[in-house]
């Protein structure tokens, strides 16, 4: 069983011994991009992860993301920008350790990624008994899809949450994402039925963003800035209902830190040790200063 791809995240690649260099031009009309965001196209951080993975696949054949050790997104990429991925690939145990530096067309570093990939197939999750570990408590919120869209700037098809249950704003929530074979990552005849790790992480991140923004005064576009140690334990397939259990650990100087786990039925599919995000007004992303938004 191989992994589906949300979009062609590289346009070309050059492979040499132990390294690969790939280029992608950010296009507003690529799959998923019209929803990220309708008013301003920003290449999602998770698609940078997708670009790295597809570059690695050019060098060694199909791979799946097993563990995202560290990802840092330093500057946003907008429509028309080029992304250049340079990845060093090392074989370790029965996997691949990859360190990648991503830059824009001017050579400025936009992201750094360190991850472990696996080759070959992995057994699918047995859909066990539905979780009943979080009974509703008083004072908890439930958000339907309309309410989610009121909180997040993401839109179809990049809105990767269906429902929020048991939300204690600013503290924790449980988010539901039903994976369907109708999603753009399954279009065409490309093989692969595993839901992309990049989209699973995006979905988790959106749940974390809802949790933060429900209790926050910040407004603008939430930007994924860093992740540390995300382990993808089991494949997620069309028909699976993913439940993200998300905790908001800290908010420091306008940056939020979240962690949690994702389940399909009783099986854990992913563990997120730490994810970091900031909120930026859309305007600061489009002017010159905003390109280096973390400064």
């Amino acid at each position: 069983m191989s992994t589906a791809t949300p979009l062609r995240a590289i346009d070309s690649a050059e492979v040499s011994e132990g390294t690969v260099r790939a280029v992608k031009k950010v296009a507003a009309d690529d799959p998923y991009m019209p929803g990220h965001f309708p008013e301003l196209t920003v290449y999602p951080g998770v698609f940078t992860l997708e670009s790295v993975q597809q570059a690695v696949a050019e060098a060694v054949g199909p791979v799946r993301l097993a563990r995202l050790r560290s990802a840092r997104f330093l500057a946003p990429l907008l429509a028309g920008d080029s992304l250049v991925v340079e990845a060093a690939i090392e074989r370790a145990d029965d996997g691949l350790e990859v360190r990648a530096r991503c830059a824009d067309g001017t050579g400025r570093t936009t992201a750094k990624v360190s991850a472990r990939y696996e080759q070959g197939s992995r057994a699918a999750t047995d859909v066990g008994a539905r979780l009943d570990r979080h009974r509703p408590r008083s004072g908890e919120l439930r958000l339907d899809h309309d309410a989610i869209r009121a909180v997040l700037p993401h839109r179809h098809p990049m809105i990767l949450l269906d429902r929020i249950e048991h939300a204690a704003p600013g503290e924790r929530l449980e988010a539901v994402k039903a994976v369907s074979g109708c999603e753009p990552c399954y279009q065409g005849d490309q093989p692969g039925s595993e839901y992309p790790a990049s989209l699973l992480l995006e979905s988790f991140g959106q749940a974390a963003a809802v949790l933060w923004l429900l209790g926050a005064t910040e407004s603008g576009l939430p930007m994924f800035t860093a992740a540390r140690d995300v382990v993808f334990e089991r494949p997620v397939l069309p028909g699976d209902v993913v439940r993200h259990l998300v905790r908001l650990d800290q908010v420091v100087d306008g940056a939020a830190f979240a962690s949690g786990e994702s389940f399909v039925g009783a099986d854990r599919v992913a563990v997120v040790t730490s994810m970091m995000a900031v909120v930026r007004p859309a305007l600061t992303l489009t002017n010159g200063n905003g390109r280096n938004h973390h400064e």
Partner: peptide, 26 residues
């Protein structure tokens, strides 16, 4: 390092030692 890393260092310290450090110290 950039300012986001400084914030990340601060956040990890606050979590580990369970202290509140004002952002003005950053």
């Amino acid at each position: 390092a950039d300012s986001l890393r400084a914030i990340e260092i601060l956040a990890r310290i606050e979590k580990k030692y369970k202290v509140d450090i004002p952002q003005s110290e950053l």
